[in-house]
Computed example of a mutant assay.
Amino acid sequence: MNTTQTIEKMQQMRLLGMADFYKEIVENNLFRESTLDEILGMLIDREWDERRNRKMRTLLKSANFKTMVDTKNILYSSERNLTRNTYERLMSLQFLYNNENIIITGSTGVGKSYLAQVLGTLACRQLHKVIYINCGVLFEKIRIAKVEGSYLNLLKKMERTDLLIIDDFGIHEFNNEVRTAFLDIIEMRYDQSSSIVCSQLPVSKWYDTIGEPTIADAILDRIVNSSHRLDLKGKSLRTLETKE
């Protein structure tokens, strides 16, 4: 048996996890310690794990998160209006399986984006497709897509995403083009997938921010009624970090 050729063939077939483990087996003489069935099972398990991890890394990269997050860095406190029990229920991702939304509101710097990205990262690790996007960037993508004739492709991309995270909602102005496009996106995703919306504005001000009563009613009906809400309080975490 030519071990080198076998490993090269595995690599050419993109069986990278299997190739690495087979090399370990040969180098450590594990053939003597395990049965053929056990070795075959371990080879398949290693390849399965390698493919899963590769897909997870791809999903994390394509999600376009703006920062690395860690659940250990979450600050739970009554002053922030954030309890461990409440947020850990969200971290179970049950909202995602139920096609429910999350609304995170609070003043600038209180950690809205961070908490949203934690949930997005957990979703990627469970092999869900996630898009994290600033609302202003989304509006610009809509404008460009309509000019270039790729608007339907943009809608399909948004529709196929398991979790859409929209940050800084309400800061950027809604015009007629953006309003109808935003409704298209929300309508296509309604009851089919989940969204997280982060905003400095309380939900009570969203209606006036969107403008055009009929469209505003339709958008809010599809986002708000099926949502979990986190209304964060307290001082800016960035200010606290600077002082420390």
Rank of each mutant, 00 (worst) to 15 (best):
M1C: 11
K9W: 03
Q11Y: 02
Q12S: 13
M13P: 00
L16M: 09
L16S: 00
M18Q: 15
A19D: 07
V26S: 10
E27A: 13
N29L: 04
E33G: 08
D37C: 05
L40G: 05
E47M: 03
E50H: 13
T58I: 05
T58H: 07
L60F: 08
L60H: 13
L75P: 00
S78D: 13
R80Q: 05
N85Q: 10
N85W: 08
E88G: 05
L93S: 05
F95M: 01
Y97Q: 13
N98I: 00
N101A: 09
N101M: 11
S107F: 03
G120E: 06
K141N: 14
I142F: 09
I144W: 06
A145C: 10
G149H: 07
G149P: 09
G149E: 02
L154V: 13
K156I: 09
K156L: 15
L164N: 12
G170Q: 03
G170A: 11
H172Q: 15
N176Q: 13
E177V: 15
T180A: 14
L183D: 02
V203C: 00
I215H: 00
A218H: 08
I219F: 06
R222H: 10
N225D: 06
H228T: 14
L230H: 01
G234H: 02
G234E: 02
S236V: 08
E244H: 11
